[in-house]
Computed example of a mutant assay.
Amino acid sequence: MGRETILPLLIGGGISLVSSLAMFLLTSWYDQRNKQNEKATEQAFLAHRGLQKLVHTFEYIENTARHIDKEFANSERNTGIKEPSSLVRPIIGSGANFEFVETEEIVFLSEGDGDLVARIYEIQKRAMNIDVIVSTYNSLRMDYDNFIENHIVGIDGSELQAELEGRDALIANMRVGRLNQLLGGLIDLLEEDRKTVSGVIEEYLASASAKYPKQFSKASFEIREA
């Protein structure tokens, strides 16, 4: 009699224990999944922020290159002018507005061979170098313009006429030579980097889309013509 009474209680207790364990495991799994989703969302946000930084780097390089292209393409103003630096006026508003990509923003690329990460840091360092060259060119070009203004003797249409002799002529030639050298190096860098950066961004976007398909489903990169 006693045994018959106890047995259902033991069975009932066992069922209650199993149910509690199942609920605990289910709750733990649900919490873990939520944490994983939250982590993925956070990492996707950081990856998107890294993408924006790369796009800003590209915009800086591309806009600088287009400015120089337009200066050379202005055939009306460029008639008869031979010195490249005489064609390219100071690049106003050229200050770099890009930031370096941080490690946490590209952590999702750690599963790769490291090549893309290395190229990301390389193009950003090169962009910073370009910014230094542009700033130097702007400063030297404005100094040269101020120097020439002190020797203006007349105006022919839209062009200023200046007379330089002796020491002044030597100084002018030296400054023009340095400006041409800076400009030539700048053009070479821009031509290479405007292609390299766009390629890196496309690879970055492809990797981010594969890693975070939901968060990057609408992300795209297009180069608009000026």
Rank of each mutant, 00 (worst) to 15 (best):
204 Y>G: 04
143 D>F: 01
68 I>C: 06
110 S>G: 00
119 R>G: 00
66 R>D: 10
158 S>Q: 13
83 E>P: 00
212 Y>E: 08
33 R>V: 09
75 S>A: 13
209 S>D: 10
139 S>Y: 15
86 S>T: 08
63 N>V: 05
76 E>Q: 12
102 E>Y: 12
99 E>L: 13
223 I>S: 12
90 P>C: 13
147 F>H: 04
3 R>Q: 08
169 A>K: 01
176 V>P: 01
128 M>N: 15
152 I>Q: 03
116 L>T: 01
63 N>W: 03
164 L>R: 02
15 I>H: 02
204 Y>I: 06
67 H>C: 07
189 L>H: 14
190 L>C: 08
90 P>R: 11
109 L>C: 05
158 S>H: 12
164 L>T: 00
51 L>Q: 11
108 F>W: 09
169 A>D: 04
3 R>H: 08
184 G>W: 02
51 L>D: 06
125 K>M: 10
59 E>S: 09
46 L>Y: 12
76 E>V: 14
225 E>N: 10
132 V>T: 13
97 N>H: 13
172 A>K: 11
65 A>E: 13
79 T>M: 09
226 A>I: 04
138 N>K: 01
138 N>L: 03
167 R>V: 12
215 Q>L: 04
98 F>A: 15
150 N>W: 00
1 M>C: 05
225 E>L: 11
164 L>F: 10
195 K>Y: 06
137 Y>E: 02
155 I>W: 06
132 V>P: 00
199 G>M: 06
26 L>H: 09
115 D>A: 04
220 S>E: 06
24 F>V: 09
27 T>H: 04
164 L>I: 01
151 H>D: 02
114 G>F: 02
218 K>A: 15
222 E>V: 15
127 A>T: 09
182 L>F: 14
190 L>K: 07
107 V>F: 06
113 D>W: 03
166 G>S: 06
66 R>H: 12
22 A>R: 00
100 F>H: 07
112 G>Y: 03
135 S>W: 02
178 R>P: 00
78 N>R: 06
89 R>W: 08
18 V>P: 05
52 Q>D: 11
100 F>N: 12
6 I>Y: 07
9 L>T: 09
99 E>A: 09
11 I>C: 05
200 V>E: 11
150 N>T: 10
18 V>C: 15
107 V>I: 03
41 T>W: 08
162 A>Y: 11
39 K>L: 15
223 I>C: 10
171 I>W: 03
180 N>K: 09
214 K>R: 05
127 A>M: 01
60 Y>E: 12
79 T>N: 11
12 G>D: 13
172 A>F: 05
28 S>D: 15
119 R>Q: 01
46 L>E: 03
38 E>R: 11
215 Q>S: 13
109 L>A: 06
83 E>Q: 12
37 N>F: 04
186 L>A: 09
99 E>M: 12
5 T>S: 11
19 S>A: 14
192 E>Y: 13
82 K>L: 15
44 A>Q: 02
86 S>L: 12
221 F>P: 03
116 L>R: 00
106 I>N: 07
202 E>V: 08
50 G>I: 07
65 A>Y: 14
196 T>P: 04
44 A>F: 03
22 A>Q: 05
212 Y>D: 13
12 G>A: 15
149 E>T: 13
200 V>N: 15
66 R>K: 10
17 L>R: 14
107 V>T: 02
199 G>S: 00
183 L>V: 01
136 T>R: 08
111 E>M: 08
